[in-house]
Amino acid sequence: MADGGELGRTVRANVNGTEVSRYVANRSTLAQFLRDDLGLTGTKVSCELQVCGVCSVLVDGSPVSACTYLAVDIDGRKVETVEGLADGDTLHPLQQAFVEEFALQCGFCTPGFLMMSVALLRRNPDPSEEDVKEYLDGNICRCTGYRPIVEAVQLAATRMREDGHV
């Protein structure tokens, strides 16, 4: 993203387990960094106001809105995106449950829902329906009407508890 004249700096970060180092413009967002500099286009952008949840990724384990989080601020941190969830060809239990429960249609909001759900299940491996709704209330989906997403998160939680998944 950085062009002639752009002020920037070099950031080093761990993205999905890989150490990366790039010169980024000061005004680059984390979403631009992931999508344009690293080619990790799984992270989408929609409202650009931190209210839709589409661009949610994890930085040092906590969900952030990549649309407004500055790329320079990931220096020295660990970033997790949707591309890092599957283990080779084996889907993460949340990904598998989303497919099985029809918890997505167009799929544009899905990476954000998945990353928020990962964060939820790390904090609370056995969430009630109300827990899921409260935690994911900041993620908008326009296709599904949400119920299948709640079901998918609970299905994944059950399987992960049974399998001792971390």
């Binding site: 999508r35 286009t41 799984g42 949707v82 591309e83 889907l91 990904q95 997505l104 167009c106 799929g107």
Partner: peptide
């Protein structure tokens, strides 16, 4: 049947115009 497009969509591999 499970929808085939959903697999690419949950991994972030699905291509949208914006990509």
């Amino acid at each position: 049947v499970l929808r085939r497009d959903l697999y690419a969509k949950v991994t972030g591999a699905a291509t949208y115009t914006v990509d």
